[in-house]
């Protein structure tokens, strides 16, 4: 990005143009209605991070991280405050996805697979930590709590069980979310994408017929 080196903070600030700021609430909305649509269609998955992935691709990791954070704040407000501490998970996953996309991994199928696996591991680790350190082992609010308890009873191992149940819960859900986001991003025309890129002017310096007729 850019020829002149910018400071790290300045780099983050640059990602928050007005366009990016307007994108954030809309991406949050997409996350939420994605989850709602999945439940309306009676699909056994969440699919509630499509907005996060799309915003990561368009406007960078820090914008995506905010999308993740706000999605959880929203869920905490409307459905259950238990979601609040799990913001850490959304933010962490958004950053991982965002930076890996920046590195160009989303362009190839194998790259998408790597992002998928990495984000699943990160989210399981973070979610497990929140469950363990904030809630003492289980929230009692989700299906995975029961799975966790069963695993603990079987293995006598608290942290490992929490992590394992979180992995199982996430692996399939994330795979489908990434598959859908991959298709959608393919469909977004370059013209729309270039509106967000920080170096939009570079984009069109390559254009042959530069001067007006």
């Amino acid at each position: 990005m850019g020829k002149n080196k910018k400071s790290f903070i300045q780099g983050i600030k640059d990602q928050f143009s007005v366009k990016a700021i307007v994108l954030i609430p809309i991406a949050v909305g997409i996350n939420l209605v994605g989850g709602m649509l999945a439940s309306n269609l009676k699909l056994p998955i969440f699919l509630d991070m499509i907005g996060t992935i799309v915003s990561a691709a368009l406007a960078g990791p820090w914008v995506a991280a905010l999308v993740g954070l706000l999605t959880n704040i929203f869920l905490a407000l409307v459905s259950n405050p238990v979601y609040l501490p799990y913001s850490v998970v959304s933010v962490g996953v958004a950053l991982v996805v965002g930076f890996m996309m920046r590195a160009g991994l989303f362009k190839k199928i194998w790259g998408v697979v790597i992002i998928w696996l990495a984000s699943t591991v990160v989210s399981a680790a973070l979610a497990g930590s929140v469950t363990y350190f904030v809630f003492g082992g289980a929230t009692g609010a989700t299906g995975s709590s029961l799975l966790t308890v069963t695993l603990i009873a079987a293995t006598q191992e608290i942290l490992g069980s929490i992590f394992a149940s979180s992995m199982i819960e996430n692996l399939i859900d994330r795979a489908i979310a990434f598959a859908i986001a991959y298709v959608i991003l393919k469909y977004i025309p370059k013209r729309l994408r270039s509106q967000y890129s920080l170096d939009g002017t570079d984009d069109f310096a390559e254009d042959p017929d530069g001067s007006p007729a």
Partner: peptide, 15 residues
Amino acid sequence: LSFRYAGERKQALKD
């Protein structure tokens, strides 16, 4: 006034 949007070939406004 002339203008061409970034990433597009066509002039949106011509003189």
